[in-house]
């Protein structure tokens, strides 16, 4: 279980996260939704220590992550597929996947995980020797997810996997999220696409300007008047 308590982050004078608490139980899909600038990405970055926290603690299966180096956090199985995909454009698909497995020494396991991601994303197998920068946006997102899977995540955190993608690809990505979860990986999903996220999620939190203002099971939030008004574009 990932458990975040009273997490605060400042960017210069801006109080981006103002003491948030949430939990991601093992085996579940949990989503953080909210508008631009609500602090969703900051939360994920704080968990892997890519931004400094001002206060609060992050525990992963009882172990304190706060203050650890990113590389050591990743090695505990907490893996982030970052916003904007951040694949290495000048490296091939194959090399990107190899970097995903950078921390692993179990050659057999890596090889079988490679086969597994090629089953999930056959397109990547076709493009194995191609530079990641030449892939389409959807393919780059597939690569970003595949690369994260190569790190053997126990919890996969995905930051806006649907950003800028065609509806068909978005659907495919969310199907994959479900599939990854079914295979036993906990998922923490950050999304602006609130509807899609709440539909797959077991539990959701709504972030607004650095605070959690609402939480509940995905289906409950989907039905909530305030969520419908603010994030699903419905008039009340």
């Amino acid at each position: 279980m990932l458990s975040v308590q009273n997490l605060s982050v400042h960017y210069g004078g801006i109080h981006a996260l103002q003491g948030i608490d949430f939990e991601v139980p093992d085996g579940k899909i949990v989503t953080l939704i909210g508008a631009n600038g609500a602090g969703k990405s900051t939360t994920l970055k704080a968990i892997v220590n890519l931004v400094k926290t001002t206060s609060g603690t992050i525990h992963w299966n009882g172990e304190l992550l706060t203050g650890k180096l990113t590389k050591d956090i990743v090695r505990t199985g907490v893996v982030l597929s970052p916003e904007g995909r951040r694949v290495f454009p000048n490296l091939t698909v194959d090399e990107n996947l190899a970097l995903g497995a950078y921390s692993r020494n179990d050659k057999v396991g890596v090889a079988s995980d490679r086969e597994r991601v090629f089953v999930l994303f056959p397109r990547l197998k076709e493009r194995m020797k191609q530079k990641a920068g030449t892939l389409s946006g959807g393919e780059q997102q597939m690569l970003a997810v595949a690369r994260a899977l190569m790190s053997k995540p126990k919890i996969l955190m995905m930051d806006e996997p649907s950003l800028g993608l065609a509806p068909l690809i978005v659907k495919m990505i969310f199907d994959i999220v479900r599939e990854i979860n079914k295979a036993g990986t906990t998922v923490l999903l950050v999304e602006q696409n609130a509807k899609a996220a709440l539909e797959v999620a077991d539990f959701g939190y709504v972030l607004e300007t650095g605070r959690i203002i609402l939480s509940g099971p995905g289906k409950t939030l989907l039905a909530d008047q305030r969520v419908r008004a603010a994030y699903l574009g419905e008039a009340i």
Binding site: V48, L50, V74, P82, L91, E95, L99
Partner: peptide, 24 residues
């Protein structure tokens, strides 16, 4: 080499390399 791969990763995107558990 693996080190070389990490070097190329760090040179394009340091934070993304960190997320790959590369010791920058």
């Amino acid at each position: 080499t693996k080190t070389g791969l990490a070097m190329r990763a760090v040179s394009t995107d340091v934070d993304a390399a960190r997320l790959m558990a590369v010791d920058v």
